[in-house]
């Protein structure tokens, strides 16, 4: 294994008195795609929030590209090259497609380059550049969100439930794009309730349950040994 792009050591986090992460250990190798699976309530989304800086950990360490980042806010992490696509609403609904894309230039990419890349991958967005993002379909909204990942060439791409509320056909289309991103050598940590869809594009998989990572390994061995845990809750 090469140097991990993301290394998490004994991470704890809680909502009030309820501990949601109970000592997470996880390591994502550079250039790899890792799927993070597990039933509802296993703590996956909380882990994403902590990694992306939206939530403070109570203890533990996170290293992003070798840099210790436990105290950084989301905006600093974004500038360090972490690109997070959160679950649910990941666009600004009252901004046009173009404006949504322009905001991505905060990550240090020129605005023109963002638009160019986005429209090259998703020609449909070019036709709708003046449309309010909130009035587009869920799939199109995720395309806008994905454009950010494509254009900013992040050190680590954090995908949280990309497929939520989307029709299977559109999920396939989005994951095709994720597949294309992986070809550029971007490291990805991908949280997904559709275990199989995520495993298709992954090099490694990790399974969370009860606030811990209970298994890591190659996708097929994970699927064989851990299907009970993965599928027990959220299917």
């Amino acid at each position: 294994m090469s140097v991990p792009i993301l290394e998490i050591v004994d991470l704890h986090a809680a909502y009030g008195r309820i501990e949601v992460l109970r000592g997470v250990n996880l390591s994502v190798p550079k250039g790899a795609v890792m799927a993070l699976l597990g039933p509802n309530g296993a703590g996956k989304s909380t882990l994403v929030k902590v990694i992306s800086g939206q939530k403070k950990a109570t203890s533990g360490d996170i290293h992003l590209g070798g840099v210790h980042v436990r105290t950084g806010g989301p905006e600093e992490l974004a500038r360090l090259g972490l690109c997070t696509i959160p679950e649910g609403r990941s666009v600004f609904p009252n901004l046009t497609v173009e404006e949504n894309l322009l905001l991505m230039s905060y990550a240090g990419v020129p605005a023109e380059a963002v638009l160019e890349t986005a429209f090259a991958y998703f020609p449909r967005l070019k036709e709708r550049r003046k449309q309010l993002a909130g009035t587009m379909s869920g799939g199109e909204q995720q395309m806008v969100a994905m454009s950010r990942a494509l254009a900013s060439d992040p050190a680590l791409l954090l995908l949280d439930e990309l497929s939520m509320g989307l029709a299977p056909l559109i999920v396939d289309e989005l994951y095709e794009t994720v597949g294309r991103i992986t070809e550029t050598g971007v490291s990805i940590l991908c949280i997904e309730q559709f275990a199989r869809t995520a495993l298709k594009i992954s090099d490694y998989a990790a399974v969370m349950s009860g606030g811990r990572v209970v298994a890591t390994g190659e996708p097929d061995e994970i699927l064989e040994t851990m299907s009970d845990v993965i599928l027990g809750g959220a299917a």
Binding site: P74, E75, P86, E99, Y106
Partner: peptide, 23 residues
């Protein structure tokens, strides 16, 4: 302007704006 767009974006969803690297 970008800062103005960021202003409207922070009306929509300030948390998301942070993930974009905005402040």
């Amino acid at each position: 302007t970008r800062i103005g767009t960021a202003m409207r974006a922070s009306v929509d969803n300030p948390e998301l704006l942070k993930l974009f690297g905005g402040q």
